[in-house]
Simulated assay, not measured.
Amino acid sequence: MNDLFQEAVLISMFAAAVRIATPLLFAALGELITERAGILNLGVEGTLLMAAFAGFAGSFWFGNNFIGVLFAMFVGAVMAFLMVFMAATLKVEQVVTGLSLNLLAAGMSLYLYKTFFQGGEEPYIVVMATQPIPLLSDIPYIGDILFQQKLLTYLAFMAVPAVWFLLYRTKWGLEIRALGENPKVIDTKGMSVSLRQYSAVILGGVLIGLGGAFITIGSVVRFVPDISAGRGWLALVIVIAGNWRPGGILMAALVFAFLDALQLQIQGVGVAMPYQIFLALPYVLAIVLMIFKARRGRSEEPQRLGVPYFRGER
């Protein structure tokens, strides 16, 4: 156990937590924008999975991680389009739609992988390189933890204030938040409810796509089925734990990421404890947080979340 508290191990663990938080942050911020527009997208897990495959495929085919990231963003937008088309245009039940997208992604990603990559040598890609920030990366301890990360990690943390500014300091953000509370306000002003929901959900899908890109391009050299490994579901919990605010989402994502990094270090140093206990900790914490939020009763959840809007309703 003492090995776990050595300086090098602690620095490595905190740096890993920052890295692990990257896809969670992207996915949770994307879902935040989506939910603020009144759309409940339970297809985050499927979107992450499809974007992870697209990022891997694009990087492999073109030998360029940047192109892989663009592929992942595009697929994230496509998955979001399917969600908002079903929810905002066809008025299909949103929970069912999101779960259906997850099932579609699980089957489609495996089918596409077998179609394009089976029959030859197992495909591998070059993982995105670490980009130390000059001067800042030389700061003792903090530099190793925060400023020796990958470009997508920096982008994920920069997205937190960017999303806050977009939602709370722009006209578009005000309109999006109004959709989640009372879309009739937007409708009575002669503005399109559906158009704004499309823009919010697709933007959210692009962010989720960036999270999917990091899962493959930023982390591993190959794609495996279900590589998203429940991160989409954790992202949904992080939005709730963060009380639908970017700052709260950042804190919740770091807590979940730290628990994940902790169990990885425990396995690495060979602590004589069942690592499965720590592996389950993020999910146990998620359940506890859900119960706590339900009992607390004070929530900034959009009032019209998951409720379709019909023009002319009272």
Rank of each mutant, 00 (worst) to 15 (best):
L262I: 07
M158R: 04
P225N: 10
R245D: 06
I67W: 07
M13K: 01
L262N: 06
P161E: 06
P140M: 01
S228P: 03
V96N: 09
L236E: 03
R19Y: 09
G312V: 04
V201A: 12
G190I: 08
F256C: 05
F5E: 02
Y198W: 08
P274I: 02
V307S: 11
I266F: 15
R36E: 12
G306R: 03
G218A: 00
F85C: 10
S100P: 10
I277E: 02
P308Q: 11
S109Q: 06
F53H: 06
F85D: 02
D226Q: 13
F26W: 10
L40A: 13
A37C: 00
W233V: 10
L207M: 12
F60N: 11
F258I: 09
F26L: 01
R177S: 01
G306L: 07
Q6I: 03
K184E: 14
L151E: 07
I217E: 13
V307I: 14
F116C: 00
S194T: 15
A213E: 04
A21M: 01
A52W: 03
F223V: 08
M273C: 10
V127M: 03
A51K: 08
T89A: 14
E45N: 14
Q149E: 05
L103Q: 02
P274G: 02
N41F: 05
L264I: 11
M273K: 12
G218E: 04
S12G: 15
L305S: 01
A21D: 01
W61Y: 14
F157H: 07
L210V: 06
L203T: 14
V288E: 08
M73G: 12
F14D: 00
L174F: 14
Q131C: 04
A17N: 02
T130R: 11
G143R: 05
A77Q: 05
E301A: 13
L90M: 14
A105W: 00
E301V: 14
R311T: 15
F71A: 06
L166V: 10
K114W: 04
N243K: 00
K171R: 13
V84H: 07
P123M: 04
V239S: 09
I215W: 10
L254F: 04
W233R: 05
E35R: 10
L135N: 08
A159V: 11
F71H: 06
M273P: 08
G173E: 10
A77Y: 04
L195A: 14
F116E: 01
Q94D: 12
V220Q: 10
G204I: 01
L203C: 14
L236I: 15
G107M: 02
E45V: 11
L10Y: 00
R311P: 09
K189R: 15
L166I: 07
G46C: 10
L70A: 10
G30L: 05
L103K: 00
A156T: 01
A272R: 15
I33G: 00
G306I: 07
